[in-house]
Design a binder for these strands. Sequence first.
DNA 1: TCAAATGATTCAGT
DNA 2: ACTGAATCATTTGA
Length: 321
Amino acid sequence: MDDQTRMLASMGGLGGLSQADVGDPDSVRKQQSLGQPPQDIGDILQQIMAITDESLDEAQARLTLVLSSAVLSIRGVQEEDPPDPQIMRLDNMLLAEGVSGPEKGGGSAAAAAAAAAAGGSPNDGSIEHSDYRAKLAQIRQIYHSELEKYEQACSEFTNHVMNLLREQSRTRPISPKEIERMVAIIHRKFSSIQMQLKQSTCEAVMILRSRFLDARRKRRNFNKQATEVLNEYFYSHLSNPYPSEEAKEELAKKCAITVSQVSNWFGNKRIRYKKNIGKFQEEANLYAVKTAVDAANVSAQASQANSPATPNSGKVMKKYK
DNA sequence: TCAAATGATTCAGT
DNA sequence: ACTGAATCATTTGA
């Protein structure tokens, strides 16, 4: 789990979702909806987009200005070539999580419903699992719609620039190479925005996973019989409440829980008992009596095979030292 | 709705 | 590896 935190950090997140945001689908949307590309890119794009509303003359002048500054900023930041390891990592992860791949098995809601139905039994996990799937589908849907938006914006903008260049070519010669360069610049800009989207999506998925993987979130209390068994052992070994590995296994089997759950339980019990012995006194007495009764019954059964009746087996004995 | 109880995790010490 | 301590996140009961 901490691995995931580390991973998030290493992904060089952009601001990132806070822990409090986790699980809130709106927060995912907020983050992803073209959220915050780095200031310079955002500014440049905004300026460029604003050009649409201006007259052509003005536009020509400003376009040159804006694009030349864009070129400068790109020179500084993006020297490397397309096979960017960072974006490849993101792509791989999105693919692995089934976010960016082809949609499998009908609509997301249908998939979630199917998962829930297949799980049939009230076995824990199936509900959470379908919940997880539903949230993942939500992220996936947002991711795709955003991606589509970006692609559309990119091609629209490319067209726009091409038109402007064509206009400009009346007043000055423009080489095909220059056009090509402009297009390349635009595409690189948009793909860097896409990377932001991919990063945010990765973060959202990782956080979603960590949320559903955290066992603390699906805590269930042990049943009464299990806690009785554990308490019986604890209070009858109060002088040394450290069950051996074998004892733990035995207890785990009796309680239908895992050995590590037994260890957790004893860890918690010891510390909480020690912290406030007074509070547990009543419980201690209760279980001391209980074990005393059991012991009495056992010995009674053993030595009393001849005697017909065993009264008072359920009632609590008064005696406790 | 709130505090207490409770199971699980994290971290440091051994 | 195991434990104590602190803490988290959920359940439970008033």
